[in-house]
């Protein structure tokens, strides 16, 4: 189909209008915000709660107890957690046998797809921060916390450091140097649990992804 490529590009080049007037792009309208750290956290919480996300603010050293409480409250039978990342190791260290079993995403998906799709109740992952304006979590899945981990289990817990909340998307991508460092295989903004309004505009949660998104904000 190289011919198609050539033809398309030629038509575009030949047909391009002379003196194509291009207005300047002033990004101030999506960039300029003056929120304090506290305001950003409040706004993040308000926005994500408005789309059915659940937020728990917790002292950094108490997140595991809080997670244990939530697992019990939600009657979750197991938990998928990294066995390499620091929060995963910390969790595994403090775990005990009376708690729901911990699972690890330690194989390629092909060898346990069915199990992941049918037998995992919940997963916990970290994130690369959040966006206050839209109540979004930034995730860059990687080999320790693969892509399906935040998608397939019905409940997704996310650990967010309170001081990692950006005002806007454009600020987050600039400060983290997304465009300059190159993008990962997959980058995500997650803003609430999976939902649909395709049946008569009635909201329903968990249509394909998690039914519950629970954010533990570590202060």
């Amino acid at each position: 189909m190289n011919q198609a490529r050539q033809n398309i590009l030629k038509r575009l080049r030949d047909g391009r209008q002379q003196g194509f007037a291009v207005p300047t792009s002033d990004f101030a309208v999506v960039r300029e915000r003056n929120w304090t750290a506290a305001e950003k956290l409040d706004l993040f919480q308000q926005k994500i709660e408005s789309v059915h996300g659940e937020v728990h603010r917790v002292a950094a050293e108490r997140w595991i107890q809080e997670l244990i409480r939530l697992l019990a409250e939600k009657k979750l039978g197991n938990l998928l957690v990294s066995d390499i990342k620091a929060h995963g190791l910390e969790l595994r260290e403090q775990w005990h046998e009376s708690l729901p079993p911990l699972l690890a995403y330690d194989r390629k998906i092909e060898s346990w797809k069915e199990q992941l799709f049918t037998q995992v109740d919940a997963a916990v992952t970290g994130c690369r921060g959040a966006i206050a304006e839209t109540g979004s979590l930034i995730l860059w899945p990687d080999e320790d916390e693969p892509r399906l981990m935040s998608l397939v289990p019905p409940v997704h817990f996310v650990l967010l450091q309170a001081d990692q909340i950006y005002s806007t998307f454009i600020e987050a991508m600039a400060e983290q140097g997304w465009a300059t460092q190159g993008m990962p295989t997959n980058a995500l903004l997650i803003s609430g649990p999976s939902k649909t309004a395709d049946i008569e505009q009635t909201l329903a949660y968990g249509v394909h992804g998690p039914k519950e998104l629970v954010v533990l904000v570590l202060e």
Binding site: K47, K108, E143, R147, N186, A187, L188, S191, P193, S194
Partner: peptide, 24 residues
Amino acid sequence: ATGQHITTYFNMISSPRKAAEKDG
């Protein structure tokens, strides 16, 4: 489109699964 401040997912894909990655 729907009056949402953002959709649940904004999914950015830049490559197939890399060697060490476990899914995708």
